[in-house]
Design a protein around this nucleic acid. Structure first.
Lengths: 337, 337
DNA sequence: ATGAAAGCGCTAACAA
DNA sequence: TTGTTAGCGCTTTCAT
């Protein structure tokens, strides 16, 4: 263990106050004599001093620590959010603790308990459901910012993407492409966990695009899956093919992991899959640029989302700012089309 | 703030010891009367109790917290390591703090200072250089496990992949494929930051494969870049093409971000790039399955690496275990070849 | 079978 | 211009 302020004071025959004022750089400003100040500075330069954060936290009832609860880091979207938020926190002198709940409600509750015990100053979270968000708000005295999923609770600040509009734009673009290239305007949407507001909004957006194009329900087939992972995409495709359906012109997935699982299954099953198959997904990935197919993706503006979320948190930690709902715009990225 | 043990004791007219013994489940085992125990249990069930971790840490000089320092989370390899380690720590009742140093030595030093002040019990890190590893070992009383990069310091436990052998296997496979498909046996290696031991080992492995195949230096061209990011891959390709070289049959990259940058540039520049271009990279990505080219990758065994690393840390935190160097084996994954 | 008290290292209020 | 002290909530040791 490093030296404490008491140690230094004792060794130098001074009081803790004197040492502390020098340490805080308040020496000149307040009252310490030049001589004393430089003596202390020298001693510290030589022997070093590292503050004990546990003690400071106990005293101040503040840990300068924030938490981020996400489903998983192996999903690039969440990893990128985590990277951006970690950097932002660090720049502000705060420590970020990242934890994954694997989309399990029990895990998320356990994490909330844990972060409460560890006295984190505030929490960013991708809520598993509305109830957990409410619990977290109570535990953390409303220093809570919700990310990615909007359960419609106006009591807490939330930062989401405009998923309905994204679905609409994506759907419109895809149908337009079908008409332009003499493809049948038929879409298969693989939706992981339709109970999540973000996934549902995306679905609704696509439905609206189909409807406004004057098309009907046979032009849009929807295959749902319990979650948003690789295996969900895979089994969704398998389930779809098993029913004897032909593959529609366009395949849309609700997230990158679902996209990967779906393509994996498609390539294995074969059945009419080729480079002509139009692919589309929500979220983005550089590798999509390199596929031979026509590929379309809706990219979320992660830097903006994190900026907004962090600003909200800063508001909550200082003045009790107004609670706001931020909706960030997605960008359509089209390749080979 | 939640209730403290003192609060509960005061409210119930008991002493803190009594409350604590019940809380710890040592009531029966020790001496508390059944009546008292159930009274206390009821009270706690009703009013709840969350331990104050700051106070506990101060007293015990132990935070039950570990740190992980990696270059960045937007690289899937590191994100996956982080996810696995976070889960492993959580299962052991420990908190993991993940921080990104962006491959900057100053950032890494700052993070080491920060984690020292926060009294973390141990640190996992991808060292930027040998000196920083030594510093960290001093700061954290040797509770340090190095990951991914082996600077040859036998004093500290380290978990790495067998990069030389991976390079050799990858090189051999690629040359073999060239012969089998009547391609000229020529390789271009794009190596991000050749000063990193892992990258250097990969390079040496490929060199050995070329040599053992009876080929010479004109069969292996190496273009280096300062780091291992997207822009490095991009500029490496641009630099290579600018010198008027033709693109060799095989393009190998030292990491996925370099791969992405390289392909991005290739597709833009055009010059002889097609689906016939053989591609290869270290590290793995599901999307590689979907490229039309012959693609080869060397996949690291992240779960095993994290198991080994965590076991080492547990050793360091209990008995002072022997310092070990773990070398994990990579798996070759070939597509369309 | 239960209680009291010291002390971890820091901060802030109050003395001198 | 500098010093003293209480107390944050917990754990541990020693008394009753």
């Amino acid at each position: 263990m490093a030296q404490t302020v008491d140690d230094i004071a004792a060794h130098m025959g001074l009081s803790v106050t004197t040492i502390r004022l020098v340490l805080l750089g308040k020496a000149r400003q307040y009252r310490i004599s030049r001589a004393t100040e430089s003596r202390v500075r020298e001693y510290i330069d030589e022997h070093g001093y590292q503050i004990n954060h546990s003690a400071r936290s106990l005293r101040l009832k503040r840990t300068d620590t924030l938490a981020l609860i996400i489903p998983r880091l192996s999903n690039h979207y969440f990893a990128y959010l985590a990277e951006l938020l970690e950097r932002r926190c660090r720049q502000a002198g705060l420590q970020l603790m990242v934890a994954c709940c694997d989309d399990s409600e029990e895990n998320q509750q356990a994490l909330i308990d844990n972060f409460q015990q560890r006295n984190v100053d505030g929490v960013f979270m991708v809520p598993a459901n509305a109830k957990l968000a409410a619990t977290a708000a109570r535990y953390f005295d409303n220093r809570l910012v919700l990310l990615d999923r909007d359960f419609g609770m106006s009591e807490y600040p939330v930062v989401v993407s405009d998923n309905e509009r994204a679905g609409y734009e994506l759907g419109s673009k895809l149908l337009e492409f079908c008409f332009a290239t003499q493809r049948a305007p038929s879409i298969l949407l693989l939706a992981g966990n339709p109970y999540m507001p973000s996934i549902d909004a995306r679905t609704q957006g696509i439905k609206r695009a189909v409807k406004e194009a004057g098309l009907g329900r046979k032009n849009l087939q929807i295959q749902t899956a319990p979650r948003n992972g690789f295996s969900d995409g895979k089994s969704a495709v398998q389930d779809f093919l098993r029913t004897g359906h032909d593959l529609p012109s366009v395949l849309v997935t609700s997230s990158i992991p679902v996209f990967e699982g779906a393509l994996d299954a498609l390539r294995a099953e074969g059945r009419g899959y080729s480079c002509d198959q139009v692919l589309a997904t929500f979220d983005d990935n550089t590798m999509l640029d390199f596929l031979p197919n026509p590929v379309c993706s809706m990219r979320q503006d992660c830097p903006q989302m994190i900026d907004l979320a962090f600003a909200e948190m800063q508001g909550l930690m200082t003045d009790h700012a107004t609670i706001r709902r931020h909706v960030s715009t997605l960008t359509l990225v089209a390749r080979n089309m």
